[in-house]
C-alpha cells in the first residue's frame, strides 16, 4: 500500500505549512515519514540541506533533536507510568542537554511556558484534562529546543474553547522561538487560520498547494473546492448562500487506487484523460500549484 506516493514539497524556515485532507489521505504518514518514524521507500528528505533519507539511527540523533512532534491524542501519546518531569525531561536526558538541577529548572521553565504549574511536575498524565495533557506534549516537544515541529492534529481531540488556547500558544511560541511548523489537520478552518501555505492531499498525493489565503479565495482543484464547500460554517446566513458541491461516494482504497487521477472516481469535471494519465502538480503562477487536467 502506498500511503504517500511521489510527493514533493518544501517548508521555509519560520513558516507554517498546513497539510489537510480526509482520513486515509496520507497526511499523518507524511509527517511521520519526515521525522523518520517510518522509513522512506522512495524519494529523499532534506533538513536544512542534509539528506536524512538513509541516515543511520546514530547519525540521525542530532537531527532528531532539531525535529519534534506533537501528537493528536493527548491520552495515548503520554506514558501513563511516567511523571510530567520524566515525560518532559526525557528528551533533555537523551540529548544530554542539562543534568540534575539544571534539568529540573529547565522542566519548571517549560511547564511555566505552556501554562502549567511547578507543582504539576510530579503528577501523572491521568491527573490532567485533555487540554492540559496537550500542554505537556507541547512542553516535551519544546524541551530540546527544536527548529521544526510536526503538529499532527494537535487540537482535534480537544473541546472548542480549549482549541483556541492551544492554537494561540503555538502561534506565540513560533514568534518567540522562530519555530517552523508542519501543521497536519482535517479541520480546514483552523488550518487556514494558522498556516502560511497549505497542501491539500488526496489518496497519498497533492491535489493543490498554495498560500493559505490564495487557496481559500481561489481554490482551483475540484477536490479543494468540494472540501471547502463542505465545511459547515457557523453562520446560518452564509450557509444558505454557500453553494455546496456534494461529492459522490467515498474515498477509494489506497491499496488499489484508481488509474490516472486519483480523484477521477468522484470528480464532477472528470474527462477521458483523467482516467488515463496522472496529472502533474503544475505551477499556475505565484506559487499556486494544481494537479488537474481540467483547470
Amino acid at each position: 500500500m502506498k500511503a504517500v506516493d511521489d510527493v514533493s514539497f518544501h517548508i521555509d524556515r519560520g513558516e507554517t505549512f498546513g497539510l489537510v485532507g480526509e482520513s486515509g489521505c496520507g497526511k499523518s504518514t507524511m509527517g511521520r515519514t519526515i521525522i523518520r518514524l517510518y522509513n522512506v521507500t522512495g524519494g529523499e528528505i532534506f533538513l536544512d540541506g542534509t539528506n536524512l533519507t538513509a541516515m543511520s539511527e546514530k547519525n540521525l540523533l542530532p537531527f532528531r533533536k532539531r525535529m519534534q512532534m506533537i501528537f493528536q491524542d493527548p491520552y495515548a501519546s503520554l506514558n501513563p507510568r511516567m511523571t510530567v518531569t520524566d515525560i518532559v525531561g526525557e528528551g533533555i536526558l537523551v540529548h544530554n542537554i542539562f543534568k540534575d538541577r539544571e534539568r529540573q529548572e529547565r522542566i519548571f521553565e517549560l511547564l511555566d511556558y505552556v501554562g502549567l504549574k511547578r507543582e504539576h511536575a510530579n503528577r501523572y498524565p491521568h491527573e490532567f484534562s485533555g487540554g492540559q495533557r496537550q500542554r505537556i506534549g507541547i512542553a516535551r516537544a519544546l524541551a530540546v529546543e527544536p527548529e521544526l515541529i510536526i503538529c499532527d492534529e494537535p487540537i482535534s481531540a480537544l473541546d472548542v474553547s480549549i482549541q483556541a488556547q492551544i492554537v494561540n500558544m503555538l502561534e506565540d511560541f513560533q514568534d518567540e522561538m522562530k519555530l517552523t511548523y508542519l501543521f497536519i489537520a482535517h479541520d480546514l478552518s483552523m488550518v487556514k487560520h494558522i498556516s502560511d501555505r497549505i497542501g491539500v492531499m488526496y489518496l497519498g498525493m497533492f491535489a493543490e498547494v498554495a498560500e493559505s489565503y490564495e487557496l481559500y479565495a481561489h481554490p482551483q482543484h475540484p477536490y479543494t473546492r468540494a472540501l471547502l464547500s463542505a465545511i459547515p460554517i457557523p453562520d446560518p446566513d452564509l450557509t444558505r448562500k454557500n453553494k455546496r458541491t456534494i461529492l459522490r461516494g467515498d474515498v477509494p482504497s489506497p491499496i488499489d487506487p484508481p488509474d490516472g487521477c486519483r480523484f477521477a472516481t468522484r470528480c464532477p469535471l472528470v474527462s477521458d484523460l483523467c482516467t488515463k494519465a496522472t496529472p502533474e502538480l503544475i505551477d499556475k503562477g505565484a506559487g499556486h500549484f494544481v494537479a488537474c487536467h481540467n483547470v
Binding site: 472548542v160 474553547s161 482549541q163 483556541a164 488556547q165 492554537v167 494561540n168 465545511i231 460554517i233 457557523p234
Partner: peptide, 25 residues
C-alpha cells in the same frame, strides 16, 4: 459569545487572533 470567538471565522482573512475561553470546564 466565547464559543463563537473560539472558532476562526471561515471567510474573513483570519489574521485576527482567536479569543479563547480561559480555564477549563
Amino acid at each position: 459569545v466565547g464559543l463563537h470567538q473560539s472558532i476562526p471565522s471561515n471567510l474573513a482573512i483570519s489574521e485576527k487572533r482567536l479569543v479563547p475561553i480561559r480555564g477549563t470546564p
